[in-house]
Structures are given as C-alpha cells and as structure tokens.
Amino acid sequence: MWQALYDEVKNEDFMIIAVAEESRGNETAKEWLDLAKPSYVTLIDREHHVADLYNMVNVPQAVWIDEHGRIVRPAETAGSHDAWRSMNREDMSMPEESTAIAAKAQKTYMDAVRDWAINGTMSKHAFNSAQVRTHLALPTENVALANTNFRLGFYLREHGQVEEGDKFLKIAVDLRPESWNLYRQAMNLREIGPNGFAANEDFFARVDALGAGRYYPPPNIEGFPTEAGFVPVS
C-alpha cells in the first residue's frame, strides 16, 4: 500500500517502517511481504509491542515521528473508514457510494502523509506539541492489564501451554473489547480463517453492535470524509 508513496517521495529524510502485528510471525507475514516486496523497512511484531507502546487498537494505524524522534501525529487510523461496513458479506461487494467514500478517505490520508514526507514541519498536517497532546488517546488500567495478559498468553502458547495461553488471551480480549488487534489476533492464533481473515460471525456481530457509532474516528485532516457511508444494522 505504501510502496508507491515511498517511491514517489524518494526523500532521504523520510522512512516508512511498517510493523506486522503478527503473532504467527513469518508464517503468515512472509507471503504478503514476498508479494509486495517493499523497499522500506518492514518488521515483525509477534507480541504486539508497538500497539502496546503507542496504544493502538487495530490495523492499519500510524504514528508520525519527526527527525528528532518526537511524535507529530499520535496513533490514528491510516486512512480506514467505516464505509466498509456497507460491504455485502456474501460476495464482498460494496455500494458505489461507499466505495467512493472509502477511496476518498484513503487518498486524503495518503496526500497528507506525502505532504509531510516532503515538507516536514512545514506541513500543515504535522501537529505542534499542544495538538499532539489533544489528540493522544491514553491507555487505561484495563488496557495495560489486557496487554500484560496478551503477552503472557502468547508466551504460554509458544511454550506448549496452548490451552492455558488461550485463557489469558481471552482475558485480554475481554478487558479491551475495542481492540480488534487483540480480538482478531487471538482468533487467528486459534485457527487461520478462510483466506487468512479473522472475520467470522462473531466478528460481524461485534461490528453490528457498534450501531451508528464509528469504529474508526476520522483523523483530523481537512477533506477526510466524515459521513457514515454505511447503514447501521438495527
């Protein structure tokens, strides 16, 4: 997804680091990377350490970090939009209008990244310190506890205690139900879903339970579509 942007910017001062939140590691990540052959940095994060450090709840999310190692945009969706919820679950088709909204969301976000990649602090999309703090979502005690349970569950699974490990993964998911990272990763560890996707009936029930609420808060970027793009399931 980011290769075209990376090639286009061709700026020595800019790097993309794409972290695979992938507890199965190379087993599931390699196929994708062999296909995409990215020339930027790609890392494998089996324990979801980056999501823990930056308080992320799903993929793709992104953080912008300046030359001095300072956050200039905290974790937010990297262009995803709730419009995908209008997808037909049988044939994966989307109504034209929702496809257009999702595409506009993606393009608006990409354009903002490109602008910052080229212009750095001069980019209007790079936040100042006060703005970063306003947009920061801080973890709660339950989030910290969920992450600790996830790490322990992952380790136990890795070391032959699969059943007991799954118990800790379940506690993690229950403590932080809004994290699709934890929920879908735990599902994928139990069993790799059809086409590799951890999206079963239970997942869609969770999506439907969001009602009219958004899963992806629109990033504060001028022009990013704010309309729903989906009809809530009642």
Binding site: M1, W2, D13, F14, M15, I16, I17, A18, V19, A20, E21, E22, T28, A29, E31, W32, D45, V50, A51, Y54, M56, V59, P60, Q61, A62, V63, W64, I65, D66, E67, A78, V113, W116, A117, G120, N181, R184, Q185, M187, N188, I192, G193, G196, F197, A198
Partner: peptide, 10 residues
C-alpha cells in the same frame, strides 16, 4: 521523518 504504520494478514 518516520511514518510508523501497522498491518496484518488477518
């Protein structure tokens, strides 16, 4: 400048 992003297969 680092664009730090996440992805997954699942």
């Amino acid at each position: 400048r680092v664009f730090l992003t996440t992805w997954s297969s699942w």
